[in-house]
Amino acid sequence: MSQATLSIKNLHKSFADNEVLKGIDLEAQKGDVISILGASGSGKSTLLRCVNLLETPTSGEIRVNGELIEMRQDKKLGAVPVSLKQVERIRSRLAMVFQSFNLWSHMTVLENIIEAPVHVLGVPKKEAIVKAEAILQRVGLYERKNYYPGQLSGGQQQRVAIARALAVEPEVMLFDEPTSALDPELVGEVLNVMRGLAEEGRTMLVVTHEMAFARDVSNKVLFLHQGLVEEQGKPEDIFENPSSERFKQFISSVY
């Protein structure tokens, strides 16, 4: 069996006394598109944020391309990464798309996209610009390359955020509810771009409420409930034949 691009074992996360994740296992092979579903408070965003250590897991193992993110126990802080350098390096290989876009507001669209390649990965600026322009063509925003994020609609901003993620050629793209902050008429343009990425064979982890996306685009679905994986499998199996009563309720309530 080939090495998993991302592998998570027995992941726990507590905030003070509140245990949000109670032991999650997840494996993504290259090209997997995994949708993570769940009611609010089920821990799905926390899970995604643990992958690139925006939240520090309380315990468990995370491997990216087989490389273990090393953790140690600190008396005061609890679990902390052994090497911040390693964390930064791994983060630079995992791109994240946020619910509220989080584009850098003082930079133009183009500057946002070349920032990480040039200043984190050390790509020559000229090269980064050529690539960024090609990516912008793809997401249909080439004409807006000199605009500032504040001059764009939410849907456009999110497409720029996806372009920013693509520019680092990530091992895994992490999407944290990418359409939840958008007006309904803008959701489509973002989902279309994401669908294109999935077809291209990108490895994606998508926390979402878009059932249609989960069912039609992803090849694996994870349903979280109270910090545990309640149901998982291929979308065609679990949507047609859910084994968990809660997942049944969840899909009927969302549809």
């Binding site: 930064e88 983060r91 290989r93 791109a95 994240m96 946020f98 876009f101 584009l103 200043h119 984190v120």
Partner: peptide
């Protein structure tokens, strides 16, 4: 959010 994005893209 902008600080979080910087972190997520591996900036020190």
């Amino acid at each position: 959010g902008e600080l979080e994005a910087a972190k997520a893209y591996g900036m020190s």
